[in-house]
Simulated assay, not measured.
Amino acid sequence: MIYEGVLTKMQTEFSNPIQYYLVFENNFLILNQLLDKNLEINFVGYQCLHCSKKKKIFRQGFCYDCFMSSPAAGDWIMKPELSTAHLDIEDRDLEYERKVQLQPHIVYLALSSEVKVGVTRKTQVPTRWIDQGAVQAIPIVEVPNRYLAGITEVALKNHYADKTNWQKMLKNEIPEVDLIKERMSLKYLIPKEVQDYFHPEKEDLYDLHFPVLEYPKKVSSLNLDKTSNYSGRLMGIKGQYLIFQDGTVFNVRTFEGYVVKISL
């Protein structure tokens, strides 16, 4: 069977193991059912996720023009501390920025390759942690806007990583860490403005289990711009990566906006 469409990040369902779906406009794949089976991926072209034009993807599924103009690609997306909607200051589109920034956000610790700190909207729990390939995660604070989450993350970056080592994550090279104890030690590291939102007594540690038959010892990333055709046996799914038997890994989210054909 052949499935064709524009790549967007894999949709997930929090269960044991996590369920993964690759959704196209007119059909979808239940990826867990394809474990230990051969897949062929063919690069067909581009389609910007914002304007839908067949223009080369620049970043985050957007063509260059849309990346530079869309409010969904503002700097505050990657750097929450730059959020200004709580001050009624517009970056690109104040109505959009109010909608996204002025809602509950979680600052968390996640264990993916090492302990990392991060920010996500409350509505994205636990999806954000699944996308990162975290095997455990725990909220630190829940705050009413993105700015407060951002300044908390900045304060904690002095003590924790803020990025996942994707190779260690995919090889499952993860240290044993007690995230509950880690959270208990954070009270005096977070900004004064956020202290009242710190509630370490909650029992809210998340355990995440990924559908992986075999972890690779070495990994090599598939780049559709360099390799337009690839075929391999699917051995696992973790984060937003497909893991193949030969150690090839494919980051679906990196190639959002790419049009592909997938043959089973």
Rank of each mutant, 00 (worst) to 15 (best):
M1F: 09
M1H: 13
E4P: 12
L7Q: 04
T12F: 14
F14D: 03
P17A: 00
Q19V: 03
Y21F: 15
F24L: 01
E25M: 00
L29D: 07
L29H: 01
I30P: 10
L31P: 14
N32D: 10
Q33H: 15
N38K: 15
N38R: 11
L39H: 07
E40R: 10
I41L: 15
G45C: 09
Y46A: 00
C48M: 06
L49K: 14
S52A: 13
K54A: 08
K56I: 06
F58V: 00
R59M: 12
C63I: 01
S69M: 01
S70E: 07
S70Y: 14
D75L: 03
P80V: 00
P80G: 04
E81A: 04
E81Q: 14
T84V: 04
A85D: 15
H86T: 02
D88V: 00
E90D: 13
D91V: 13
E97W: 08
K99N: 15
P104Y: 00
Y108W: 08
V115M: 07
V115H: 06
V117L: 08
G118S: 06
G118L: 05
V119I: 04
R121K: 12
K122S: 06
Q124W: 00
V125G: 04
V125M: 14
R128V: 00
R128L: 00
W129Q: 02
I130E: 12
G133H: 12
V135T: 08
P139K: 00
I140F: 05
P144A: 02
Y147K: 09
G150K: 01
I151A: 02
I151P: 05
T152P: 08
E153S: 06
V154Y: 13
V154N: 11
L156F: 01
D162Y: 12
W166Y: 13
Q167F: 05
M169E: 11
M169Q: 15
K171P: 11
K171D: 05
N172I: 09
N172F: 14
N172G: 10
I174W: 08
V177D: 05
E182Q: 03
M184I: 01
M184A: 13
L186V: 06
K187C: 10
L189C: 13
P191R: 05
V194N: 02
Q195N: 11
Q195A: 13
D196P: 08
F198G: 06
P200T: 02
P200E: 04
E201D: 15
D204C: 03
L205S: 06
D207H: 12
L208V: 09
F210P: 14
P211A: 01
Y215V: 08
P216L: 02
P216K: 03
K217F: 09
S220E: 13
N223G: 08
L224R: 09
D225L: 11
D225K: 13
G232K: 04
G232H: 12
G232Q: 07
G239N: 02
L242P: 15
I243G: 12
I243F: 07
F244T: 01
Q245F: 11
D246I: 01
T248K: 06
T248W: 09
V249Y: 05
F250R: 12
V252W: 07
G257W: 10
V259W: 13
V259K: 15
K261L: 03
K261Y: 04
S263A: 02
L264V: 13
